[in-house]
Design a binder for these strands. Sequence first.
DNA 1: TTGTAAGCGTTATCAC
DNA 2: GTGATAACGCTTACAA
Lengths: 345, 345
Amino acid sequence: MSAKRVTSHDVARLAGVSRTTVSVVLNDVQEIKISPATRQRVHSAARMLGYVPDAAAQALVSGRVRIIGLILARRPDHISSDAFIPQILEGLLDTIHKHDLRLLIDIVDPEHQEKAYLELVRANRIDGILLSGPLTDDRALRVLEKEGFPTVIIGHMQKSDLCSVDVDNRAAACLAVGHLLEMGHTRIACITNAPLTYAAATDRLGGYKETLEKATITYDPALVRYGDFTVESGYRQMCSLIADQVPFTAAFIASDTLAVGAISAIQEHSLHIPGDIALVGFDDLPAAKYTKPPLTTIRLPTAQLASRACDLLIRLMNMEEPVNGRVILDVELIIRASSGPRNMR
Amino acid sequence: MSAKRVTSHDVARLAGVSRTTVSVVLNDVQEIKISPATRQRVHSAARMLGYVPDAAAQALVSGRVRIIGLILARRPDHISSDAFIPQILEGLLDTIHKHDLRLLIDIVDPEHQEKAYLELVRANRIDGILLSGPLTDDRALRVLEKEGFPTVIIGHMQKSDLCSVDVDNRAAACLAVGHLLEMGHTRIACITNAPLTYAAATDRLGGYKETLEKATITYDPALVRYGDFTVESGYRQMCSLIADQVPFTAAFIASDTLAVGAISAIQEHSLHIPGDIALVGFDDLPAAKYTKPPLTTIRLPTAQLASRACDLLIRLMNMEEPVNGRVILDVELIIRASSGPRNMR
DNA sequence: TTGTAAGCGTTATCAC
DNA sequence: GTGATAACGCTTACAA
């Protein structure tokens, strides 16, 4: 069936040297001087045979597998439409390739994340973990933290000293709502991206409240709805807002996904965006540019988040104590047509 | 730093047995009878110590790493907005988990795919390969084919006997264009999803031509444009079609991504969809449901494609010669508002 | 400078 | 039934 494996032994024999020499030459060990001639012979023998060292053998002896584990905590029914996953991958792959690492990916249900990654670690399948998603601070994670296993969170986790790379969701929400204030709106509704058990949802709602307070606008719970990740929930909650007849001229939708649903709801009620209701979303998903009208939103630097997290992780893996275990990246307000000035009717 | 690794030795000692017994018990080797009492002792010792066998050691001795490699051939600048990636992952993960496998993912530039996966194979990092994307039939791939390394293509590759799971792009295009014919259109434009060097693009264009021919409509090259994966190219090519003033009342856009751009172009020219130009897309991306108007399109069973490919691969890995090396899955025409009947002006 | 030998943690083959 | 012992392919002291 498949051709017999080429081992360092074969290379050694062809080059007329010992396996040690092969290893030394190919790993470019500086301490040991090898004559250029031998070096050359080894290299060409290796190339000729198409020799690639066995990863398992290397791992067994070195204790490192050169694989990073990316654990995505996602609800199973939301994976297929998760626009962040490709962005995270994009951010990761450059760095990973540059360091000659590989990426092992696993998606776990946030409800039962527990052992998924602990087993990866225990089996020595990965040298470090990148975590993304709505994480609960579970036992497994605390074990890793205590053991000092290289771990970086893309996003945030409460009550944890693990390294993380995140945006300031609260400040970002302030930016979004502040923009609506500037456009002259004072009755601003809010639909959260998720239930408040999710930290990001709480933070974004917190930013919303804070901005209103600063502008001495009383917080009105009647203008707030709680979303649930999906387009449908955006649609539903916007319908609910409109149906309640509590007047508002703008809305901060803490997720573009939900905003798409909200737009649909608004237009079904024959209301105009931004004339009747101005909209600001959150995330700047690829789709945001192509909604009708294009959606003003907060751009999340997802790829950079991932790439910075990866850098941090690699430093942890190399035992260089990271200078800064908590990185906060800036977001950007992307102004498009959905957030026009208040309609002067 | 991190706690010392728990080995089978530790488990053996705690259970008061030999390492062999530990291995036999934990791997549930049927041929060797172990007394229930010892069995029990081993299990509880393992659980107590949190023992997980070292993957590298297992791999070294068994020759299998229990990892599947997913190679995505993608242009680097298109990764972040590739809506297929999450769908593929979704299709894969169930099967992978069920078989206690892991997923190693790598994204390679289609231009320089060559060695990326060959090295993974040579280093024994993966037991099988899943390939997705516009593949060129490169040398590396032919080597793997000759060696009989378990490989399955999600999609299609010309001149290759590798296993694959795909849709019939030509038939799918026929479905799309046929629908437009049924709606009374006879002047139907076409924008391909990609340059014709990509097999899927050729096939879809072929289906377009075939359907017209069957309806005895002469193929008019002036109505055909060649897209290039991006929203922008969809926009540009639709502008070009409109600018040329060759009359048409409908268009088959062989990718939803491009269709989004095309919609934008049409509306910028103050034309109405479907009144002035009816549209059918291809792929049924998550966004298709939320364009304005919602996009009629061909639903690609991406997740199933991936999951079937994974099944096939696992059978290959287990040396069970697959019954059927070429699987073709059905597509579905999703009729939404963008493909209304011809405007009776 | 190069080769010899030990050991990484597991599984598999045997005697016991 | 159970326990030594030999592989798997590599790296790395250490010896030559």
